[in-house]
């Protein structure tokens, strides 16, 4: 092969394979992409929650895009505890000020960043959350402190529509 000069036929082969590969890719992509979230799933983008009945020290869990979201009205001690932690003690350093803009309210996805279980409230070595599946401990800011989870629990996009209502998404 290597000694031979390329002929017209070699060009035809290469061109045919190239066109064939593009054709196969064009057919395969719709078959792969149909598995991605569809329009009806994407449409459920935001949820509004009434939090007026929530007392300090209580948490409610709401469903947003099929995932639980924790909304916790934190006590003064919890806020103080979360804000006094040194950055170098954290596995995934994030300031509590950045996670809870309004310190009294902590809103985050109630999904363990290890393998997706729902952590339990008021449990664990750091008075925050504890994941029963593989033993990850989170603090009062939802930050990972001990265990296999790599990141803090995610804070979704949310805003206060008025004093009593949080809009998630």
């Amino acid at each position: 092969m290597s000694d031979k000069k390329p002929e017209r036929r070699d060009f035809l082969f290469t061109a045919s394979y190239a066109v064939g590969a593009v054709g196969v890719a064009a057919v395969v992509w719709p078959l792969v992409d149909q598995m991605n979230p569809d329009a009806s799933v994407k449409a459920l983008a935001s949820t509004e929650v009434d939090v007026s009945s929530l007392k300090p020290g209580n948490t409610i869990t709401v469903l947003w895009r099929g995932k639980p979201v924790f909304i916790r009205r934190r006590t003064q001690e919890e806020i103080a505890e979360a804000r006094s932690v040194k950055m170098e003690d954290l596995i995934h350093p994030e300031k509590d000020e950045d996670r809870a803009k309004n310190p009294e309210w902590l809103v985050m996805l109630g999904v363990c960043t290890h393998l997706g279980c729902v952590p339990l409230n008021d449990k664990g070595d750091y008075n925050g959350w504890f994941c029963p599946c593989h033993g990850s401990h989170y603090d009062t800011s939802g930050r990972i402190r001990k265990g296999p989870a790599p990141w803090n629990m995610e804070v979704p996009k949310y805003e206060f529509v008025n004093a009593n209502t949080i809009k998630i998404g």
Partner: peptide, 10 residues
Amino acid sequence: TWLWGGYSVD
């Protein structure tokens, strides 16, 4: 997300 076809198992 691709495996789930959404943002959670559903």
